[in-house]
């Protein structure tokens, strides 16, 4: 198992803020919009350097999406920002008509996704947004795992012409990816090569997958770990090559099982390479108040749950091998 360490913990949304600050200096076409959540989205540096290129929209997200679409028509690259809950379900129709169907170059960048928003509870803990955005034609969907990856994605999407949904979160988590990584839409990141099982993780679950990988290695199981950050388009080649080698899969995400990364992987595998898949995610339920760690534990979204799922997936693989 390849060793991953970290010296500090940071929130992924701060990676977004750092990426925006860099874009503010380097790309005069980038504008930022926000619906009364500037501090939460870490936009302070961008606003300080580019006060004219920041458009405060107030608590009116539907209008913000429309304004962003209009600005994109004129050649700006608008980054429309809010919490994931208010940047997906609340404005689905605005994104659908004015952004995706109209093909406007709007980047919808959303923080506080998933359970790890914590104490605010289920009203704010969106766990369906990946499903909604995956279903939308023409939408690119990205879920990042740490500060550095979020910063890299934020900068990279400015150079891609088309609608993007970029999802990140609130809590501080280990910073373990390379500070100078290249981020490519549609390309997965091979975290660890292995032979026994493929763990496919996204967002905050990537670090948990690495922890699980170490526990499994100690038990003699050689796990391949793939980080899918661009969930759509999906890096099908990386997944199919890996599963052809390992023969079983565990997916892990801070999202509903319905419609998320796990569903995308199952769709790919059932059509091309039917294999046992175990899915880590929230099973048809809302979240609740609590600390991020308590919630991830209660809803089974951590390294221990991934280890269990790996054991189950490998058991199923063995059954199939014995049948053959």
């Amino acid at each position: 198992m390849k060793k991953y360490t970290y010296t500090e913990k940071k929130d992924t949304r701060s990676g977004f803020g750092a990426g925006m600050a860099e874009l503010g200096k380097g790309n005069p076409n980038v504008v930022a919009l926000c619906a009364d959540l500037v501090a939460s989205l870490k936009l302070d540096a961008f606003i300080k350097d580019n006060p004219d290129r920041f458009i405060q929209c107030g608590i009116a997200e539907a209008n913000m999406i429309g304004v962003a679409a209009g600005m994109a028509v004129t050649g700006f690259i608008p980054y429309a920002t809010t919490f994931a809950n208010f940047g997906s379900g609340r404005v689905y129709d605005q994104i659908r008509q004015s952004v995706a169907y109209s093909g406007t170059n709007v980047k919808i960048c959303v923080s506080h996704a998933g359970l790890t928003l914590g104490e605010d509870g289920a009203t704010h803990q969106i766990l369906e947004d990946i499903a909604m955005m995956r279903a939308m034609p023409g939408m690119t969907v990205i879920n990042t795992c740490d500060y550095n990856q979020t910063k890299a994605a934020t900068i990279a999407i400015a150079n891609y012409n088309g609608p993007v949904y970029l999802r990140f979160g609130r809590p501080v988590v280990p910073v373990f990816t390379h500070p100078n990584q290249t981020f490519e839409i549609g390309k997965a990141w091979m975290v660890n090569e292995g032979t026994d099982v493929t763990i496919i993780a996204t967002g905050h679950l990537v670090w948990e997958a690495i922890q699980a990988g170490e526990l499994l290695a100690a038990a003699g199981i050689d796990a391949e770990i793939i980080n899918i950050h661009p969930i759509k388009p999906l890096d099908e080649t990386a997944i199919l090559q890996s599963v052809a080698k390992t023969g079983c899969v565990v997916t892990a995400e801070e999202h509903q099982l319905n419609g998320g990364l796990g569903d995308a992987v199952c769709q790919l595998l059932s059509c091309n390479l039917p294999s046992p898949v175990e899915m880590i995610g929230v099973n048809n339920s809302f979240g609740e108040s609590g600390t991020p760690a308590q919630l991830m534990e209660k809803y089974g979204l951590n390294a221990a749950a991934i280890v269990q799922a790996v054991q189950q997936a490998m058991k199923r693989k063995a059954l199939i091998e014995n049948l053959v």
């Binding site: 209009g70 004129t74 608008p78």
Partner: peptide, 12 residues
């Protein structure tokens, strides 16, 4: 939705 889009263009 059109007024919002028009606002974005006017602001631009």
């Amino acid at each position: 939705q059109g007024l919002s889009v028009a606002c974005g263009v006017a602001k631009s």
